[in-house]
Computed example of a mutant assay.
Amino acid sequence: MQVVLIEKTGGPEVLQIAEQPRPRPRSGEVLIRVFAAGVNRPDVQQRRGLYPAPPEASPIIGLDVAGMVEDVGDGVDALQIGDAVCALVNGGGYAQYCVAPAVQCMPIPRGFSFVDAASLPEVFFTAWNNLIWLARLGNGETLLVHGGTSGVGMAGIQIARHLRNATLFATAGSDEKRAVCSALGARAALDYRGRWDEEIRALTGGEGVDVILDGQAGPDTQRQLNLLRNDGRLVFIASHQGPTAEVDIRALVRRRLTITGSTLRPRPASYKGQIARELVDQVWPLLESGLIVTRIHEIVPFTQVQAAHTILDENRQIGKVVLAVDPALAETVPVPRPGS
């Protein structure tokens, strides 16, 4: 099979197409013939040498795929050969075939193409894990999402709006991106280079927000803590602006604030499988009805993977960039198995 390998750490030019043996599913796994694969920020960080794969994970980058089940390992009963699925994987997504734990596979939402489906797993898993499980976003609370037009940002805004009736604020870097945040349900979309904290404080009558979802960290950490209401939660999904920050611990204790963060990749399949079940139960119906949407910024042929990474390096994307691993089938809509 064809795969994308990282020759050495660096820019998009280090990504090269190579040949490798097709993997085989182990117990509890399935083999997926990949038609489309999502391109995510962790892929870029791994290419740069800043996000090493866990020891047991495939060294091939790529965390979400969509395609057809080609083979099943021992102990897999819920899936069968020929099923159309999308899956969160622990690596190996940039390939014509990829293994995935069966519990991390989900049916493709009705009416979605393989490209559409490949845009879902990593961002919706991440948004659900951080907002619903870690931040415990409550009904009617107020949320600030930094990077509102990233894949995770768009998923988070929509989950919070439709499942928690949250009041939403977002930051983004251009008028076009801020307009998209507003269209998704943000009460206000602000320039992340400006005085977003002062603007939000004014819009909330000085109260601030209950939860902040952020991927930047660094020197703005205390600024974000200052914007939280008492009992507020600041959740990090990355630290692009720096791995350390100076914070006022006395204020954190006095105001009962929580700082937390997560990375899903090292989590066991049982943990991710539970998220998959909750997404299929609570989010997939909203995707199928059109209340929650996915936005594909660009479909890039598998052989042009360097161009796909350049889009993310230049921060041009609004939504998801997806690789068409099998260009003949990537944009087709699968027919659900009878009874599914």
Rank of each mutant, 00 (worst) to 15 (best):
I108P: 03
R229Q: 15
I61G: 02
V65H: 00
L213G: 08
A84M: 09
G148E: 13
L228F: 09
A179N: 13
I275N: 04
A307H: 13
P301T: 12
S262Y: 08
G153Y: 07
V89E: 03
A160R: 09
V3H: 05
L264Q: 11
L88R: 14
V123E: 03
M68H: 11
M106E: 10
L120P: 02
E199I: 04
V280H: 09
I249Y: 07
G205I: 05
E207F: 03
E13Y: 02
S27V: 11
L234R: 01
G151R: 10
I318Y: 02
V4E: 04
G148W: 14
V65M: 01
P334C: 09
P54K: 05
L279N: 10
R255K: 15
H297C: 07
N139M: 13
I108F: 09
I200M: 08
R337A: 14
L227N: 06
S262H: 06
G242V: 06
A245Q: 04
Q96L: 08
E19N: 14
P54N: 06
R277F: 01
R24W: 00
I259P: 00
D326Q: 11
R250Y: 07
R265W: 08
N165G: 10
A78W: 02
I311K: 08
P54R: 05
M154R: 14
R187S: 15
S340C: 11
K272F: 04
V4L: 06
G138D: 14
E278T: 08
V103C: 12
L264M: 13
T244R: 13
N230I: 06
I311S: 06
P25M: 00
V4P: 01
L190F: 08
I296F: 12
G205T: 07
P42L: 07
G205S: 10
G73F: 00
I6N: 02
H146S: 12
A117W: 02
G185K: 12
E122Y: 05
V211R: 03
Q282M: 14
L329C: 09
G28D: 06
A36T: 02
V209E: 04
R161M: 09
